[in-house]
Design a protein around this nucleic acid. Structure first.
Lengths: 261, 261
DNA sequence: CATCTATGTCCAATATAATAGACATCTGAT
DNA sequence: ATCAGATGTCTATTATATTGGACATAGATG
C-alpha cells in the first residue's frame, strides 16, 4: 500500500514497513489469510513474511484465527486503536451528527478521512431508503474516485497532490483515465466553494455530496458526505448541502483536538 | 512491556519490538510525548527511538500532536483496531450486556481481557452509585492484582502461569508479596467454581466479582466483573453472581468468534 | 506412478538496521 | 558568565535482519 515508496531496484524492504504492509493488507482483505497467501499476494519473499508474521503473532499484533494457520489482526491493535479514539475523542459527537444527518435527509451519511494516501469511510449511517452503498466502512479507496477526495487534499499544492496520490489511482473503476489536471481543477473548485458534489464515479445511480470538517490547522481533517439516489440528490440539493454544512460546523474542531495536551 | 524476553546481555533490540514497545508505552502514558522522553523512559538508545519514531510517523502509525514535536498514536492504528473490532464483532453485544448488568445491580460493570501478559479493562459501565473506580479503561494492570486475573489464566498449567506472568507482577500495589503458589491455588479454585470474588487488592473499599466468558476453545477469553462497595457486595453476593452468570452466558461464543471465515 | 502446486521450515550470504557517541542548540539555574 | 540538562541531528561501526533458495511434506491431477 504505502510501500510504493522506493520499489526502484530489488532493494531489501525494512521489516517495519513490511510488517505494516501485512497489517494493511489484512485490513483490506477483511479476512484471515495464511502467511503463504499473504506473501504471494503482496509480492514479498515468503521467508520474510513467515518471520514477520511470527514476530507479530508473539506480540499480539496478529492472531491465529480461522484455522489452518490463518492469521488476522490481533487484539493489541484493538487496544491501540481504542487509545487513539479515546485521545482524539471524535467518536461520540460524530455518531450523533451522522444520526441527525440521516434523520433529516433520510439518506446515507458518512464520515470520511484520509488513510495514508487513500480515502476511507470511517463511520456510516444508512438512511431510510433501501439503498446499497458501494463503499464499505474501513475500505480504502483511491482519492480521485470520491467527492470527499477533492476536499481532503485541497490544502496541498498542485505538485504535492500529484506526489501524494499514487498515479494508478487516477484510473477510474470503469477503466477510464482521469486527467490529473482535471482532478486538480476540481480540487481548487471544491476548495473555493467549500463543498463538492457529483454523480458517483463508482456506480451509476448515486449522487454524492461532501463538505469539509476543518481541523485545528484550518484544512479539511475529515468530510461529511451524503450518498443519495441521483434524482433525489438533485431535487434536494440546497437542503442537503445546508444540512451538511450545519452538521460540519457542529463537528468543527472536534476531530483532531486531543482531550488534553 | 513484552520485551522482557531476552534482555540478557546488551544485545541489540529488533526494530519491530522496539516499535511496539514505543506504541505500548504511549498507550500506557495516554499522552503525547517527545521522542527524547520516550527514549529516556523506556530505556532505549535515543538514536534508535528517533529513527523509529520517524518511520512510524511516515506510516501514520504515530502522529504529531500536542506541539513541540510530541507524538502520539496515529490514525492508522485506529483503522486497524476498527478492523479487528469489526471482525470479532463483540462490541455491540458487549455494550448491551454491560448496560443491563449496570441497570440490574446499580454497580460498576466491566468487560476485561488479557493484554499480552497483563490485564486490562476493555469496556466499563459505571453503576448508579457515586463511586470512583480505580482502574481506568485501557490501562494494563498486573494479572495477580485482579479477580479476573484468576480466571483469565486458568487454562494454563501451573508452570505456564509462572512463565507467563512477569515475576515482579506478584508484588502487590501496597508493596506486599503475593506468593505465586497462593495465587495458583486461587486460580484453581476459580477454575473449579467458575467465578472469583475478593476484596480488591488495589483499594481498600471495594469488592470484586468476576465470571468467565468462554471463547471457542472453552477457556476464559474474557471476564465480566462487578466492582462494588464491600458491604453491598457481601450483602448481595448471590444475586450479583447470578446476574453475572446470566450475562456471561449471553455473551458466550460471541467474543473471539469471527463473523465469517 | 509421476508431476505439479501449496505449504511450511531451515540456512548461509550480505545489505543494512541498531547503536554509541560526537556535535550543536537552547534553557534555566547558579 | 558558567554550568548542567534536555533536545535534536548526524556518522561510523558492526551485529543482524532480510532474503534467495534448498529441502520436506501433503494433496491433487493426469
Amino acid at each position: 500500500m504505502d510501500a510504493v515508496q522506493d520499489e526502484a531496484a530489488g532493494k531489501r524492504a525494512r521489516g517495519l514497513d513490511r510488517a505494516f504492509e501485512i497489517l494493511d493488507f489484512l485490513r483490506q482483505k477483511r479476512q484471515a489469510l495464511k502467511p503463504n497467501e499473504i506473501a504471494a499476494q503482496i509480492g514479498a519473499p515468503r521467508s520474510s513474511v513467515y518471520e514477520l508474521v511470527n514476530l507479530l503473532l508473539s506480540n499480539g499484533i496478529l492472531e491465529f484465527t480461522g484455522g489452518e494457520g490463518r492469521v488476522y489482526l490481533g487484539r493489541k491493535l484493538y487496544f491501540l486503536g481504542a487509545a487513539y479514539e479515546n485521545h482524539f475523542d471524535f467518536t461520540r459527537e460524530c455518531e450523533a451528527t451522522l444520526e441527525r444527518l440521516a434523520d433529516e435527509t433520510r439518506e446515507t451519511a458518512q464520515f470520511c478521512m484520509l488513510d495514508g494516501n487513500r480515502y476511507t469511510v470511517v463511520r456510516m449511517r444508512e438512511g431510510a431508503r433501501p439503498f446499497r452503498i458501494s463503499t464499505d466502512v474501513g475500505q480504502s479507496v483511491p482519492i480521485p474516485w470520491t467527492a470527499s477526495g477533492r476536499l481532503l487534499v485541497a490544502h496541498l499544492s498542485d505538485q504535492d497532490i500529484l506526489n501524494f496520490i499514487p498515479p494508478q489511482d487516477f484510473r477510474l473503476p470503469g477503466g477510464e483515465w482521469l486527467e490529473p489536471q482535471t482532478f486538480i481543477a476540481e480540487v481548487r473548485q471544491a476548495e473555493r466553494e467549500g463543498l463538492f458534489t457529483f454523480n458517483s464515479i463508482v456506480d451509476s445511480f448515486t449522487h454524492c455530496f461532501a463538505v469539509p470538517v476543518r481541523g485545528e490547522e484550518g484544512h479539511a481533517a475529515a468530510t461529511l458526505c451524503l450518498v443519495t439516489p441521483r434524482d433525489d440528490g438533485i431535487a434536494n440539493r440546497d437542503r442537503y448541502l445546508d444540512c451538511l454544512k450545519k452538521a460540519a460546523a457542529g463537528l468543527e474542531h472536534a476531530p483532531a483536538r486531543p482531550k488534553r495536551g
